[in-house]
Design a protein around this nucleic acid. Structure first.
Lengths: 212, 212
DNA sequence: GTCTATACGCTGATAGAC
DNA sequence: GTCTATCAGCGTATAGAC
């Protein structure tokens, strides 16, 4: 049950109103530049309600964080169920993340762009949160099956998804003007097949083929 | 002239003391969780001095930001001068950044890990700052020379350096336990030569060779 | 230029009526 | 459960002595 219902009938539950307002504000101004009063005003509820439901500002952030990581984790899980090879899985996941960046910008921004340690010091680092662990598992599985060469799993995961995550950041920062989905295929192919033509380092010929 | 002198003789200039203290505090606690009093105390100077030299907390951040981006920009410049191919340039830069992450952790953390937009809203996004522009130029040059396939320069830059930047973040978050320099070569090779064995997508055999 | 002491707005949080 | 009114503390910034 997604906490965010678009175009819901008037009487939207108060929790959702608060979370929605907080997400928008946190993403646009940054957690520390948003006061409880701001959230209260934008959500159209009173301060009392906020403290009743979430116990304070940090409580809102915690709830938001949990919800969104869950949603993302579900996404990764679905990708792993519907595709079996690491190649297809990573290609699909990158495409989906890129689409999300355009259609549900705030969610992606909060998860990939916020410094959670600064306001949720007790939470473990985001890289060790479930969705990111799943990505690493995905890579390890592919490595065990020989789809990619043996090596450090962290390095392989960072290589496979680091470029995509970087592009998401560039897009969120307004540096990239094209919508990400247009770049998904190229981004995945580049990292999967390698950037270098390879003449110097690996003496194999004819590798600069299928590139667009 | 680096603003940070290690083991300098006692009477270290007051500006440096302030900047050094601020950098350490900003990185360890986050900008918004540090007060001017904290900086003042740690630097061993008075509040008055801070306002005299930098005009306030934001002034410190601005100065720091400028200094550190400059240093990083110099680094990239030197790499471009001492190497001519994109392959060698990117390999060297990744190795140097990984070494910096171990030896001058705070600098890398401030540049790669901080959300500057949250406290320096007037600065352009960091991805469009000089050192990052230089990296992109580096890639475009390599593309023009045919070292890598034609394509979107942003995608290629993100692919080439995104994995390394991701590894730096993992290391700064304490998720990675090995010192980065040990992983530098593998990280670069993975992205340069490609992760996928390539059977399905690019029908070429025998590519899983030189990987460690 | 450096320092101490002080002012004051804002923020997170609570009390208590409805 | 929801609201309004209010509090106490902190954090930035300034005034003014040395």
């Amino acid at each position: 049950m997604p906490y965010l219902r678009r175009n819901a009938p008037r009487p939207e539950p108060i929790d959702c109103r608060i979370l929605t307002a907080a997400l928008e504000l946190f993403v646009s101004r940054g957690y520390h530049n948003v006061s409880v009063h701001d959230v209260q005003r934008r959500a159209g509820v009173s301060i009392g309600s906020i403290y009743n439901h979430f116990g304070g500002k940090e409580g809102i952030a915690k709830a938001l964080y949990g919800h969104l990581l869950n949603e993302l984790s579900e996404l990764v899980k679905e990708v792993m169920e519907s595709h079996k090879s690491l190649g297809e899985r990573s290609r699909t996941l990158i495409r989906l993340l890129f689409e999300f960046t355009e259609t549900r910008r705030d969610i992606i921004a909060f998860v990939f762009h916020a410094k959670h340690r600064e306001f949720l010091p007790d939470e473990p680092p985001i890289c060790s949160a479930e969705p990111f662990r799943r990505m690493r598992d995905m890579v390890e599985e592919g490595m065990a099956r020989g789809e990619i060469g043996q090596g450090n799993a962290w390095v392989a995961t960072a290589t496979l998804f680091g470029g995509a995550i970087r592009l998401i950041q560039l897009r969120l920062d307004g540096v990239l003007e094209e919508p990400l989905p247009e770049l998904a295929e190229e981004a995945w192919e580049s990292v999967w097949n390698g950037l270098g033509a390879g003449e110097e380092v690996v003496p194999l010929a004819g590798r600069s083929a299928a590139r667009g």
